[in-house]
């Protein structure tokens, strides 16, 4: 069983982190993982993306041609990658930043006003964790508990308030994702 995923958005939206937290947790759950970011000038404010592969088999290519899941936090990400999603695959996108959306009908589209929800939770910083929650809710690619443990050990001392908001965002995302599962 292999899941290939691309997360894309503006630099600073935390797309690389989405892939990293999923790869990290999947590794701890005994899966093979790879995380391949775009790098270079595009990191500095342009569109950033990361290919993440999670598999029960050894991973051959870390390059994702046809993702099972695309997370698009802005419109250019849909324009660039949505055509390559495998038929029957999933597009998770941020309606607040993707005014034109996506016209494909052979994929599952999860359209979420992520900016609004993140603001409700109390910080735009948690937008990427909201997206991560949606991925988990839809695909069960990792367990919530593993991610919670990692975030807790990372943030509990440094910033307990941000930890609480992040966990709230993930839980909210999981609820949304489950509606499409």
């Amino acid at each position: 069983m292999t899941t290939e995923m691309i997360c894309a958005g503006f630099g600073g939206q935390g797309v690389l982190t989405i892939g990293k937290f999923i790869a990290q947790a999947a590794m701890q759950e005994g899966k093979n993982v790879s995380w391949l970011p775009s790098y270079g000038p595009e990191m500095r404010g342009g569109t950033a993306n990361v290919s993440t592969v999670v598999s029960t088999e050894p991973i051959a290519s870390p390059i994702v041609s046809f993702p099972d899941v695309l997370v698009a936090l802005n419109q250019p990400s849909i324009d660039k990658f949505a055509h390559s999603i495998r038929p029957g695959g999933v597009l998770i996108y941020n309606t607040n930043m993707c005014p034109r959306g996506c016209q494909r009908e052979d994929i599952i589209q999860i359209a979420v006003p992520m900016n609004e929800i993140a603001s409700e939770i109390g910080s735009m910083i948690v937008l990427n964790m909201l997206a991560t929650g949606i991925i988990i809710g839809k695909t069960n690619i990792i367990k919530y508990e593993t991610l919670e443990g990692n975030l807790t050990s990372f943030l509990k001392e440094k910033n307990p308030d941000l930890l609480a908001k992040n966990l709230a965002a993930i839980q909210r995302g999981i609820e949304i994702g489950k509606q499409y599962a």
């Binding site: 590794m27 790879s34 970011p37 790098y39 991973i59």
Partner: peptide
């Protein structure tokens, strides 16, 4: 190469 340098794996 740049891919190996930049990618993360266990």
């Amino acid at each position: 190469d740049g891919m190996l340098g930049q990618m993360m794996e266990p």
